[in-house]
Amino acid sequence: MEQKSVAITVTSGKGGVGKSTTVASVGLALAQLGRQVCVMDTDIGLRKLDLMLGLENRIVYDLIDVIEGTSKLRQSLVRHKEYPHLALLPAAQTRYKEEVTPAQIKQLVDELRNEFEFILIDSPAGIEGGFRNAIAPADRAILVVNPEIPSVRDSDRVIGLLESADLDQIDLVVNRVQPGMIKDGDMLSVERVQNHLAINLLGVVPEDRRIIRSSNTGEPVVLDDKSLAGRAFNHIGRRIHGEEVPFLEMEETSLINRIKRIFHIA
């Protein structure tokens, strides 16, 4: 039987690399393409996706309420008002990761598959129980990595764990790339990161101050026309959707940046 729904776990190992930003932005990009998308926060006790999507004031029930039978799945889903193809299944903020099991999360995702074409699962940092919950229902995984040693090492460890969980399709998103630093020889290039990890490159996202603005306002950066990172996330969504999209040209070309580089102050 053809599988209509795809569950994608977005993970990293290391915290703070941009998992939730990726889930919110790529989820919205897919919804803009007309797909039915559910973004699911499995970071129980430390949820973030609601803030990234500006939905924090609309949460009544959460993932644990559904598992415990306090609410129905439909009641816990928060639909985006402007993009109704997108729904959030929030994590509980005052509970613990140990209160749910991988089997329960898998069952929940199986139920979501009836309604959604894409289920993006935001994994917590680390490789403990929360991570195991997040990967249990996944058909494929996206690994978000920053071009720095701790992030790449953790990601390599996560790849090993994903492979041992029989997850074969693992794609790489290199986030917070600074082309100027790469050019100066002070940041690992995307190519080197990909060589070390030896998995398929799905996207490259530049460092972008506008991401802070987007988390301030609760409007994912993918909605920001001026944001290069937003465009990169949009392209990732389109690649997941099956389109062939070229990688962004990220070289800094503004006069100010060139002057800064001449005097080594960039």
């Binding site: 720095e148 790449v152 390599d156 100066d184 002070d186 690992l188």
Partner: peptide, 19 residues
């Protein structure tokens, strides 16, 4: 002095140990 090459070498080593 650029540092990415140093990072690259260190990364190769830590990944070897880890794997």
């Amino acid at each position: 002095r650029p540092t990415a090459a140093t990072a690259d070498n260190r990364l190769s080593l830590v990944l070897s140990y880890q794997r």
